[in-house]
Every structure is written in structure tokens, then in C-alpha cells.
Design a protein around this nucleic acid. Structure first.
Lengths: 148, 148
DNA sequence: GCAAGAAGCTTGCATCTGCAAGTGATTCGG
DNA sequence: CCGAATCACTTGCAGATGCAAGCTTCTTGC
């Protein structure tokens, strides 16, 4: 049983590395956004008011707060997000998705979807895909920040 | 259908990030090896003569050759791998798993398995796990360097 | 109220990583 | 054979990332 867990975990991590490598290639060159940046925008899109604090973003993306700070800077510069300080709590500096960001995200998601299609094309039936999707959902559903 | 592909891909990547973050925490502190370094050792373990060229390692791990060069250096220093130049082709510099490395890998795999267990424990039946494992295997089986 | 602690964010430093260029070795076409 | 192309590897540089320390702003206990 423990071996089965190990095997599954290994396969999960290897699949992800493989897919991420594939996406990274054709991705940042197309929209000027990295895969991780698109994930950040997706989290904002799903949040109320299209905004999240940096700490909350870090939690949902499983990365450190300092990385969020450093990711947000260039995204602000190109105008896809903006900074918004909470009026009640001056500690909070929300990252807000802008109109431009929403638009960019739409384009990036299209590329993402197309590449995703290539990963599964032909050899997967819709039923198998749904099965895999549901099983994976059991892993992400508990954690904060499920994007699906 | 394309939406289903996208959703599945997102869940796969998110699950992997989640699990990788979990592993990274308790991991490098225990054995002095990072998750990626353990993956490297696992690839060597499965290879004939417990050795692979740097290029082949890079292909299997979906990372660049220069990263392999830089990962191998500290691993040599702590004695878990050694360097072996091919006698016929002086370009090839194999990374070889040592006895010490094999032993270290055993310990690391135990930790890995235990942590993997925590990911699925309780809420997963053996049947579900096998289903997930098989589905993921369809993604990794084609690529070079499946570790399972 | 006020001091102590906690929370959110940023910054310095070290590490990891990829890309492009460089080096040395091998193979191939003529 | 010999020059050109290819291959395996390394290295310089830039970007990404985490940790620990520091700053500012709440919150809590008294």
C-alpha cells in the first residue's frame, strides 16, 4: 500500500514536470507571461473583486511571500495587475487584476488549453479524462485555491 | 473537450505543486538531499550499470544539461555519485551512483514513501489509488525515464 | 492607553536554473 | 585524410526563488 502511494506520487510529479516543461517552451514566448505568472492571474480572476493579498496568493500558489512580491512588480509594470492598499488595514497590499490583465489572461488561457489538448489528444477518451480529472480533484479540493 | 483537458492539466499541475511543497519541507532537512537530487539518484538506480550520461539525465528529468552539471558537483562532493569518462568516447562523462549513494537513496525513498502515504491516507481506497496510478502512467510511459 | 506580540510586506543574501556561447571530441562528406 | 558539422559538456550571465531579518501596522493583555 505504501509502495502504491509512492509509485503514484512519483508518477504524478513526473507527469507534472513533463507537462510543465512542455508548456514553458511555447508559452512565455507567446504572451510574455510565464506559466507561474498565468497561475497568479488565474487565482486573482477567481477571487472576489479580482484581488488577493500577497500572503493569500502565496498560500494558494504554495510559494513564499517574497516571491509574490517579486512576481507582482513586473506584472504591475506591464499593467496586468495593480496595487491596492486596504483602507482599514494598512498592512494589506492587494494584488488586483486589471482589465488589461483579464484580457491577457484570456489569451494565455487559450494557449494553455490548446497545449493541454496536445497532451491528451487521440489516446484519451472523454471518460478517461473525466476519471483522471475527478481523482486529481480529490487532491486539490481540500487545499485553498483550487483553480478548477 | 478542450476545457476538460485544460481542467485536468490545471489540477495535475496544482496537485504536483502541492505535493512537491509538502515534500520539500521535511525532506532536504532529513537527508541533506533535495527532492530533485533524489530524482536524479533514482534515475541512476534504474539505469544499466547505475550510470547515465549528463545529456541523458537531462532528457529524463526535463531539465537543462547545465543544471545536471551543477547538480552533479555537490553530489560528487558528498560521495553519492562519481564521474566516469567513457573510454571510447571522451565526450561522455557518466554520472555513476556509488554504494554510498545507493544507501542514501534507500533512506530517502523511505521518507518519500512515508510522505506519499500522508498525501493519500484514509480518504483513498486501494482501488482508487491504482486507478489514478494507471491513468498517470499513460502520461509518463511514453516519455523516456519513467521511474515506476 | 501601552507595551508586547503578531501579521503583512519588503529586502539582502544564497541557491537553483536556463540560455547562449565556448571548448574539446567525434563523425561525416568529399 | 581533412574540413565542416555535430555532439557532450562546461561556464558566464541573468532571472527566479526561499529564508531570515527588518520595517510598518494592527491586535491583545493588562
Amino acid at each position: 500500500m505504501e509502495d502504491l502511494c509512492l509509485k503514484t506520487t512519483l508518477r504524478l510529479l513526473q507527469s507534472a514536470d513533463q507537462i510543465r516543461a512542455r508548456l514553458s517552451g511555447d508559452f512565455s514566448s507567446v504572451h510574455g507571461l510565464s506559466v507561474n505568472e498565468v497561475f497568479l492571474l488565474m487565482h486573482l480572476e477567481r477571487a472576489p473583486l479580482h484581488r488577493l493579498s500577497r500572503i493569500e496568493l502565496a498560500r494558494r500558489m504554495h510559494i513564499s511571500a517574497s516571491t509574490i512580491t517579486r512576481m507582482a512588480a513586473p506584472l504591475e509594470k506591464i499593467g496586468v495587475v495593480s496595487r491596492q492598499v486596504d483602507s482599514r488595514d494598512a498592512r494589506l497590499a492587494f494584488v488586483v487584476l486589471t482589465e488589461v490583465g483579464l484580457e491577457k489572461l484570456g489569451e494565455a488561457r487559450a494557449t494553455f488549453a490548446k497545449q493541454s489538448g496536445y497532451v491528451f489528444r487521440d489516446r484519451w477518451t472523454e471518460g478517461e479524462l473525466e476519471q483522471l480529472s475527478d481523482l486529481l480533484h480529490r487532491l486539490t479540493a481540500d487545499a485553498p485555491g483550487d483553480l478548477t
